[in-house]
Design a binder for these strands. Structure first.
Lengths: 216, 216
DNA sequence: ATGTGTGTTTTGTGATCACAAAGCGAATTT
DNA sequence: AAATTCGCTTTGTGATCACAAAACACACAT
C-alpha cells in the first residue's frame, strides 16, 4: 500500500484557500480599517461560488478579523481606542507568558534565527514596506513563541494580531520608522543572558509601545 | 416614524440560533469530550437545512469549541493534559486581569449579586447538577468581569471556557463537590476589602484548582 | 438646500442537488 | 484467525436558485 508522499499537500478545500488568503491580508495590514466586502465579490475574486466565500468570511468574523453588521455585511473593523488598549494589554499578558516559557528552551540556533529576522526587518524599514514590516515583525515574535511549545496560547496571540491587523497598518503608516525597534535587541540580549525579568519587560515594552500611541 | 420597541429581538437567523444553542451545550458541559456529530443530524435536530448547520459548526470550530478531522467531520475535542494546562494558564492570566480591572468599579450592589450567585451555586451542588453547577459558576465569574468594561478580554475568557466545556463536565463529574468552592468566598471578601493582591490570588487559585487535578 | 418617498438594484440567507471521498461492513482470501 | 478487498452507505463540499430585506439613487415636495 502506498503512503501519501506529501501528507501536507492535501487537496485544500476552496473555502480554506479563501480563508487563508484573506487572513494573511488582514493580519499583515493589507486591508485598511473599515473596508467593506461582499460575499459575491469575494467569490468572484477567488473564482468560487458564494458558499465557500461565506464560510471563509464567517470564520474570520468568529475570530474577530472581520466585523459584521446586523444585516450580515462584513468589513474590516474600525477599533475604538478602548478596544485597542484592551488588545494591547492582551498581547502583553499572553506574549510575556509565551516568551517566558520559551526562554529555558531557547538555544543558540534560535537566537541566531531571531537575529536574522531582525536584519530582515531592518530591510523592510529601509524599503518603507509597511506590509512587509508587519509580517516580518510578527514572524520574529512567532519564531520565539513557537519554542514555548504552547499551541493554544500561540493561537490566542495570533488571534489578537489578526484583530489588530488593519489597525497596525494605519499605525505603521503614521510613524515612519527609521531603525529597528530597539526592544527587539533587548529581547535577543535577554535570551542570551537567560535573564527572565529582563525578557518579560522587553517583550511587554515591544508589544505595548506602538499601540499606546495609536490608542490616544 | 416608529422606533422598534425591542431592538434586541431581531429576527434571529437560523444559523445563529443553532450556533447559540450548541455553544451553550458545549460551554456548560452538556456534551462529553469526543462526541461526534454530523451536519445533517444537526440540521435535522433544529429543523433547518445543512447550510445553517454547517455555518454554526464552522463557527464553533473557529472558536475551538469543536474540533474537525481532515475530512471535515466535527466532534467535541478531547484535550491532552498539556492543552488543559495551557488553557488553565490562560484563564489565570486573563481572568486575574479582568478581576483586577473590575475591582475599582465593584460597588455593594455587585458584591451582593455575587453572593446571591454563590448561594445558587450551593444549590446546584446539593442537587448534584453538573451542568447547572458549571453554568452558575461561570455566571459568577462573568458577573464580576462585566464590571471590568473590557469586552475583548471577556470574549477571550469565554472562548477559553468554551474550549474547556466538555472537559469541565468530566472534571466535575469526578470530584463530587460537597460545598461551595471557598475561593469564591475569598474573592467576595477581597472585593469588599478592596484588596487587589488578595483578589488576584483568589481568582488565580479558583481558576487553577480544579483544572490542575484534571491535567495529571 | 433638506428631507422624504418610491422604485430598482444589490446582498445575505437558506434550501436543494450533484458529486466525490470517507467510512463501514460483510464476504473472501491468505 | 487475521487481514484484505469490494461494494454500499453516509457525509462533507460546493454550485445554483428563489426569496426577502437592506441599500441605493433619483425624483419630488417642502
Amino acid at each position: 500500500m502506498l503512503i501519501n508522499p506529501r501528507p501536507s499537500e492535501v487537496p485544500a478545500a476552496a473555502h480554506d484557500r479563501v480563508y487563508r488568503t484573506l487572513r494573511s491580508r488582514i493580519m499583515y495590514g493589507d486591508i485598511a480599517p473599515g473596508q467593506a466586502m461582499t460575499l459575491r465579490s469575494i467569490g468572484e475574486e477567488f473564482e468560487v461560488s458564494m458558499t465557500p466565500a461565506r464560510e471563509a468570511a464567517r470564520r474570520l468574523v468568529a475570530e474577530g478579523a472581520l466585523s459584521m453588521t446586523s444585516s450580515g455585511r462584513v468589513s474590516t473593523p474600525e477599533l475604538s481606542s478602548e478596544r485597542i488598549e484592551e488588545l494591547a494589554a492582551l498581547r502583553a499578558l499572553i506574549e510575556v507568558e509565551l516568551a517566558s516559557r520559551a526562554l529555558p528552551r531557547a538555544h543558540m540556533a534560535l537566537i541566531e534565527r531571531l537575529q536574522m529576522i531582525n536584519t530582515s526587518i531592518a530591510e523592510q524599514i529601509a524599503r518603507q514596506d509597511a506590509v512587509g514590516y508587519i509580517r516580518t515583525n510578527l514572524e520574529f515574535h512567532r519564531t520565539l513563541y513557537l519554542r514555548a511549545q504552547a499551541p493554544a496560547m500561540l493561537a490566542m496571540a495570533e488571534q489578537v494580531w489578526l484583530q489588530l491587523g488593519p489597525t497596525m497598518r494605519a499605525l505603521y503608516g503614521r510613524l515612519r520608522r527609521k531603525e529597528l525597534p530597539h526592544f527587539h535587541r533587548l529581547i535577543v540580549a535577554s535570551l542570551k543572558a537567560g535573564d527572565e525579568p529582563g525578557l518579560r519587560l522587553a517583550v511587554r515594552s515591544d508589544v505595548t509601545q506602538g499601540l499606546k500611541m495609536l490608542a490616544r
